[in-house]
């Protein structure tokens, strides 16, 4: 075989030529392959970015809507609970300044003023409390949640069960997000679900935290609710995302709802 090769250099040369053509072909295909693969990868990345951007847009829109709704509510609360009542106070004080009232009438007007100011004081405290619960700032999440659940329980419309084991693993800001999520869940259960019983279970450990919220309300179609993306649900979803939590919703019409949020702690500190 070796001998044959040595005596026919043309054969080797033609083999080399074919080898060369083959090599050029293979390397060119390799380059083309990489080019097309890159194109595909870029397309997919663009698609992903577009979806992400769309999600962010929705959240931004929802945030703005929520903000506007909150402003309206605060304006209404201020008007109804404070301005209107202060008008009554002003009226009575004017009457008193006139000096046309007799002693018993003066007494009556003063007691009216006192009553109204007490109500106004209560209302302003309530408004401030709704805007930002001071207990959360001063006594932490557990106390704030207990107070919130007690308030809901006090209405006698709903029986509240609770099991809160919280290890203060969240920052103040994250605590506020979790508090708002639970507040929203409670509001939804009563306003939309007309639930008579709700239960809240909060478990916390060094590396993770889990929140399970259950109600026995009317229930809803999860897919539909998610696709409609109402303000409340969007709010819960985005807050869960801020907390790095995994939100799961289970619900059936007539069978209440279960919300689970699993949060993994970043132990970077």
């Amino acid at each position: 075989m070796e001998k044959r090769l040595l005596i026919s250099p043309e054969q080797i040369t033609s083999t080399l030529v074919y080898g060369l053509i083959f090599l050029v072909f293979v390397t060119s295909s390799l380059i083309l392959f990489f080019r097309f693969a890159r194109k595909k990868i870029v397309e997919k990345e663009l698609e992903k970015a577009a979806i992400k951007l769309d999600g962010q847009k929705k959240i931004l829109q929802a945030t703005i809507e929520t903000q506007e709704r909150e402003r309206k509510r605060i304006a209404r609360d201020l008007h109804d609970a404070i301005s209107a009542k202060l008008n009554v106070v002003s009226l009575h004080v004017n009457m008193l300044l006139d000096g046309s009232l007799d002693t018993s009438e003066q007494r009556e007007a003063l007691s009216k003023v006192l009553g109204v100011t007490t109500v106004v004081l209560d209302s302003s405290r309530q408004i401030a409390h709704n805007l930002f619960p001071p207990i959360l700032e001063n006594f932490g999440l557990t106390a704030a949640l207990e107070e919130l659940l007690a308030e809901f329980g006090a209405t006698k419309k709903v029986i509240v069960q609770q099991d809160i084991k919280y290890l203060t693993s969240l920052t103040k800001n994250e605590e506020l997000h979790l508090f708002r999520v639970i507040q929203e869940l409670l509001n939804n259960s009563i306003r939309h679900g007309q639930a008579s019983k709700v239960s809240l279970e909060l478990m916390d450990s060094v590396d993770s935290m889990s929140l399970v919220y259950t109600d026995n309300g009317k229930g809803f179609l999860v897919k539909q609710a998610l696709s409609e993306c109402g303000l409340g649900l969007t709010n819960i979803k985005s807050r869960a995302a801020i907390l790095n939590g995994n939100l799961k919703i289970k619900s059936q019409l007539g069978n209440g709802a279960v919300f689970t949020i699993a949060i993994k702690h970043n132990n970077h500190e």
């Binding site: 250099p9 043309e10 040369t13 033609s14 080399l16 080898g19 390397t27």
Partner: peptide
Amino acid sequence: VLIYLSSSTLIFIFGNYFMGFKIPIV
């Protein structure tokens, strides 16, 4: 670089072998 170097390397490796031949195809 990829196309030229891979094919020319093959030619140069055979270059040593071709040195002995005085035929037009080389």
